[in-house]
Nucleic acid binder design. Sequence first.
DNA 1: TTTGAAATACCCTTAAG
DNA 2: CTTAAGGGTATTTCAAA
Lengths: 164, 164
Amino acid sequence: MPAASKKIRGRAPVELDDIDRGLLRMLTENSRRTNNSLAEELGIAPSTCLARLNALRSAGVIRKFTVEVAPEVLGHALEALIFVRIRPGARHLMGAFSEEMRAKPGVTQLFFLGGTDDFLIHVAVRDSDDVRQFVLDNLSANPAVASTQTSLVFEHSQGTAPWL
Amino acid sequence: MPAASKKIRGRAPVELDDIDRGLLRMLTENSRRTNNSLAEELGIAPSTCLARLNALRSAGVIRKFTVEVAPEVLGHALEALIFVRIRPGARHLMGAFSEEMRAKPGVTQLFFLGGTDDFLIHVAVRDSDDVRQFVLDNLSANPAVASTQTSLVFEHSQGTAPWL
DNA sequence: TTTGAAATACCCTTAAG
DNA sequence: CTTAAGGGTATTTCAAA
């Protein structure tokens, strides 16, 4: 287990300066930019830039460099949110349920919610038939599930990161 | 407007082969890997690999290369989901409402939902006081909002991409 | 911490099979 | 799709400020 991924409960938040924020902003837009190009735009030396970048990585601020895929281009044109309520007598199965759902194809996000002990499943699938199929196969048939409520997503947008 | 970002409504989905999937899988884990390194692991020539990568970009499969930031390390330790119902008489304000919310600091995702004309706002903030503040300032005070319902997020995980 | 320079390593393009 | 090679660029290290 990398040190960076240890519990951070109660730990003082990492404070970013302008250079850190600039790095994150640029890498958020294009994580494949070269170190030299980043350094130039920031007005610092490439070696400094590299040091900053490595610092952000070891501090755990940067979890990973990744790629954003467009699901609709690959035929997953429909997103849906499925609210799931677990049966009161099946609360001990919630951990297993969570793991099970997370692995299902089409599931893009899974929220375990407080308050009324619910899950929210975010799926990206081909069409409404797929949603129905997903609910029937994975939820309605599951004895731990008390009820579900599905909403189609008309629009889904990312917010602007608050730390930039 | 790039050709790749045009409407794809009804367009035949892009079909991926093993090499494409391999590329996406590796880049999802680390988008800063060099082309040569990707090519080697895939067992193809670097030039071929680069061509594949560019093809995925122009096809719009790859939206962008980006970075995954850990909000909790920066002090945004609490996530919440806020369900918003818009007043029946204020449906014409939904577009504006959407834009307004998306720009608020702390908002990481915004879903515009069908069915019962609702929004779901996903926020990452410091603590529960911030959630309360967010709801009071941006939602309760908004005349277009009929009601809100907030759930704290105990766990939030990304699913495995179905196209890999 | 940051820098500059130097050495190494690597990448991109092109052309040809 | 591949190989091969050229010119060019990026990365990394390290001593010094």
